[in-house]
């Protein structure tokens, strides 16, 4: 091993240590908690190993919590609903984000930078603040309802809060930039000549879009959708503030288990299953990008 490669390893050690300390160890802590039983102790769970001085002498953990999750439909419905909301939310973001990304990518370089700044700008405010702003818009005496009744269009306020619509608009307002940026980067690489060649070869603009633009931006579509989908699945703030009480989402369920029921082992197993759900699409992303190279 030459000096150069030693240096390369030295460079990679600090981030690896960081990941080990703040990602891998907490991961094993949660995994361990998920295999234990709740107890009236502090912390409120039992150990999964028996100890003989310094060495573990026996394993007493089990998959009881996972079996419990399986048996209670509340959890399955939470997962299913979370996945549905995340999937539909990502799709809405895609529908809104694609034209925006397309316009930005086709703009001349000066307007392009301004538009990109406008896309990123909302990120400079707290996402909590943006969700609260939506409450100000949607609540019975909020902006939309008071405007509509002011113009005499409605008599009684519309039910906007605590609906799917409110949750989806929360997801869009929070995560849209994460959709636009990878789409923009894919569309920006798209050569104008290809679009022109397609028109020249007899393709109407819509055919050009389906056969050239869309297939060549697929990497941006996948990346953007995953960037929106993954955090949306575990989203807690948006369904808690904008969704109704019957709006089951796994982030909310996890919160309830952890803070209201103080059942850390069940909460941990909920988290582990959610992680599994998220790792699968991540591996899908890795594979599709691997195929490209």
């Amino acid at each position: 091993m030459g000096f150069g490669s030693i240096k390369r390893y030295l460079v990679i050690i600090p981030p690896l240590m960081w990941l080990g300390l703040f990602f891998l160890i907490p991961f094993f802590v949660v995994l361990q908690v998920s295999l234990s039983d709740p107890a009236l102790t502090r912390p409120p769970y039992t150990a999964i190993f028996t100890w003989d001085s310094w060495f573990p002498s026996g394993y007493i953990g089990d998959f009881e919590n996972y079996a419990f999750l399986w048996s209670d439909s509340l959890y399955w419905r939470s997962y299913a609903n979370s996945l549905k909301i995340a999937a539909v939310g990502s799709f809405i973001c895609l529908l809104i984000g694609y034209p925006i990304a397309y316009v930005i990518a086709r703009a001349n370089s000066r307007t392009r930078n301004t538009l990109l700044l406008l896309v990123i700008l909302p990120f400079w405010t707290s996402s909590l603040l943006r969700v609260y702003a939506l409450i100000g818009m949607y609540s019975p005496n909020g902006f939309i309802n008071s405007s509509l009744s002011f113009f005499g269009i409605i008599d009684t306020p519309l039910q906007l809060m605590q609906t799917d619509f409110a949750v989806y608009s929360g997801i869009v307002i929070t995560y849209l930039p994460l959709m636009i940026l990878p789409l923009y980067s894919a569309l920006e690489k798209l050569n104008d000549d290809l679009i022109e060649a397609s028109s020249d070869l007899g393709a109407y603009p819509l055919a050009t879009f389906w056969r050239v633009t869309l297939p060549l931006s697929i990497s941006g579509i996948i990346a953007g959708s995953l960037l929106v989908f993954i955090p949306s699945v575990g989203e807690f703030v948006i369904p808690a503030l904008l969704g109704g009480p019957d709006q089951l989402m796994i982030g909310k369920t996890l919160w309830t288990e952890f803070f209201n029921n103080r059942d850390w082992p069940v909460a941990s197993s909920v988290a582990m299953i959610m992680l599994a759900f998220l790792v699968i699409p991540m591996m899908f992303l890795r594979n599709t990008q691997g195929l490209k190279e």
Binding site: N191, D193, L194, A197, S198, D200, L216
Partner: peptide, 9 residues
């Protein structure tokens, strides 16, 4: 048209 960049898909 045949493009200078060839513009192959």
């Amino acid at each position: 048209m045949m493009f200078q960049s060839y513009a192959l898909f």
